[in-house]
Design a protein around this nucleic acid. Sequence first.
DNA 1: TATTGTTATACTCTATAACTATA
DNA 2: TATAGTTATAGAGTATAACAATA
Lengths: 151, 151
Amino acid sequence: MKRNNTDRQISPTNPLSALLGYQLRRASVAMMANLAADLNDISLRPSEASILLLVQANPGITQSMIGSILGINRANMAPLTALLVGRGLIDRTPADGRSHGLHLTKAGTALAKKAARCIETLETRVLAKMPEKVRSTLVGQLRAIWDETPD
Amino acid sequence: MKRNNTDRQISPTNPLSALLGYQLRRASVAMMANLAADLNDISLRPSEASILLLVQANPGITQSMIGSILGINRANMAPLTALLVGRGLIDRTPADGRSHGLHLTKAGTALAKKAARCIETLETRVLAKMPEKVRSTLVGQLRAIWDETPD
DNA sequence: TATTGTTATACTCTATAACTATA
DNA sequence: TATAGTTATAGAGTATAACAATA
């Protein structure tokens, strides 16, 4: 098909930019990239930091329970947990013979505190970009998108 | 360390649930999973559908430009574009010897229309979960998180 | 029978480096 | 020198299936 050069785009338009799904994804990716970079300084990935914070808030919790809360499946929790145990950040105490209760070690507690500080700093920085009124309702609106039973 | 069973969690708490970054990620993942399932019926993945819509809105746009708009790098655009060309959804017309202008074929136009309908249906369904006032401002607030220069 | 944890495996997405052809 | 496109490759993240041990 013959084309002239009148359709060469100088300033392209993005038809996706008005879409909630698109903006959610871009915002999420951007924030995760920032978080990953910050957590990298303490040798943690976002998923590892999440697990530490969850164990800290729920001493004795099992791998499966963590997975079901965070949306990480059982098979993928195994190597993640093993790594954190291997680094001396969490330990396992037998619970019922087939499962273990997880607890933070002293080193794990210290690192969880640093991770929490990373996360809070980022949260504050991003939330500062929006007006107070939005700040207080945004998190709840996002939760409504994926979870009908808020906790 | 000796443990009793008083720390066995019956109803675990999630310390991440108040975090913007966490809720953004969960909402984004959930919405993308829904979109992927819907688009699967017309044999498109979200990235492929995005490219079709971008080419439709910007006839003659190049791969590199699409990549820079969508945040997909050059190397990964190559096989994506090749696949869509191979399926007869877009065609390339020489632009300047090293780049090609992309255009939707007739089949591509038809499929882009179906994809747009998938996306709009999902958007409507999700937006229905929130009050009118939030609906009108949410997208702009999300854009502010990752992009300082809205278009 | 169902659940917990594990291993193996595969698929997608993403990132970098190196190369060519052209500007 | 810089840019557009390509190829190869490596690293995450995620998904399923199958198995052992235990409930």
